[in-house]
Design a protein around this nucleic acid. Structure first.
Lengths: 235, 235
DNA sequence: GCCTGAAGTTAGTCTCGACTAACTTTGAAT
DNA sequence: ATTCAAAGTTAGTCGAGACTAACTTCAGGC
């Protein structure tokens, strides 16, 4: 009867490992075409390539990834399901913390990073219901729906806009707390309309006007900001 | 730089173990006077006595418990702090889930059991603030305050009341989902006023009147229900 | 005061996921 | 075509925390 304990714990640990690797793979696959390399996965998870190599091999036997030694890995449909489930959890939690508990924008990410592995399906549903089945998290990233479908995102990096173009700031592509904090200080939040004034040459900043004020945004920052193009404004 | 990963993970795992043992010890110490036996701890955590023995020895070296081989263990002040922190987390989460997300009464316990280990101090504070620094969780158990002080609880088991006495139902002493469900069906909730009608002899049920209806509550159930005595009613 | 059964402990094994160190494969540049 | 650095893999170790099996200590009954 006590034997169940032997089963119960190991399962959970195993699960969390798989979830983190699946999520990392998913995010790396997003723009990285064919297969994702061991080192890239290792870096993203903060482990050594040796550890990632071992783990990928194990996940392959469990049907979560397809793995060809020396040639990288890709998620199987099952692996993708796991990744999307985690991303849904993550983003719902982020939005929930920001919306319901007023947790600051730049701190929800790290909290969600750990909670995403520990909420039940039931709680996930309750949170989604409470928020009205939202489509975007507080960073503007799309939240996979109940069936794990991700709805298209038409945003482009801010650096894509030409001078004179208008865009609505939708999100920061990576969850970097210092960027978020900086933007909050400038009072640039998702939903804000930006007018691109110009671009300094040689990696110089992008000049944008927001709510009547003009800011100089560094290349790194501007490259991470996603905006939806808006017609008009060019004059 | 990647070396930190070696440090980060192990710490967290270790912590969760200590937290669970501390909580178990605390609850067993509550009524169990002197020292708590290895087997009792093992049973509560669903592990073998051998495992508990090893873990208690390790926790002793970490200053969480005081442990005399063959003679049981007791929490140190540090251990008690850990236990109370977990209990505060647990009860705040229970109340939060019930209150804010309308999660059914009998399901909040298992969800809180896992989340209690994973919320940050910051989130704990936000939840407490959102709920208005509550003193009782949805089962009526007291929530340790921000400084981990537990405020007294004057309730007694329902079986203590004599026929004719009135009591206000405050909580169920253990978190047994089936009891909670059963009470919910009878529409007996914390805050309800009960009038003890009588007691059948030889381990028979306690007859109570609630909101005009009379129910027969088995000894086991009645023994787990805590009530606060109310003056009057004896006629 | 001894003896026995219950409670507790020790020894040795397992899995998981990380690590380091040493080796192998790959592929781009000459 | 060869070479060689970067990317990847294997082998062996570690720590946590569980397990089983076998041994030890304790305490109550006679």
């Amino acid at each position: 009867m006590t034997a169940q304990a032997h089963n119960a714990h190991p399962k959970r640990r195993t699960k969390e490992g798989a979830e983190n690797y699946a999520k990392a793979l998913y995010e790396l696959q997003a723009r990285g075409e064919t297969a994702v390399g061991t080192t890239a996965v290792a870096e993203r998870l903060g482990v050594t390539p040796a550890s990632a190599s071992g783990m990928l091999r194990r996940l392959a036997t469990e049907g979560v990834v397809e793995y060809t030694p020396y040639h990288g890995a890709r998620l199987t449909p099952e692996g993708e399901r796991i990744a999307l489930e985690m991303i849904r959890h993550h983003r719902l939690i982020e939005l929930f913390l920001a919306e319901v508990l007023d947790m600051p924008w730049d701190r929800v990410h790290s909290e969600a990073e750990v909670l995403e592995h520990h909420i039940s399906e039931e709680l996930e549903e309750l949170i989604a219901a409470k928020l009205g089945e939202p489509a975007l998290d507080p960073h503007g990233d799309p939240i996979p729906d109940r069936h794990l479908e991700v709805h298209a995102d038409e945003s482009v990096p801010l650096t894509e806009l030409d001078p004179g173009e208008l865009g609505v700031f939708s999100r920061v592509s990576d969850s970097d707390a210092s960027m978020l904090r900086h933007l909050a200080e400038l009072e640039i939040q998702p939903g804000a309309t930006l007018l691109v004034r110009g671009r300094e040459p040689f990696g110089g900043p992008v000049m944008v006007e927001v709510a009547g004020r003009t800011h100089a945004l560094g290349v790194e920052l501007a490259g991470s900001m996603r905006v939806s193009r808006r017609p008009g404004g060019k004059r």
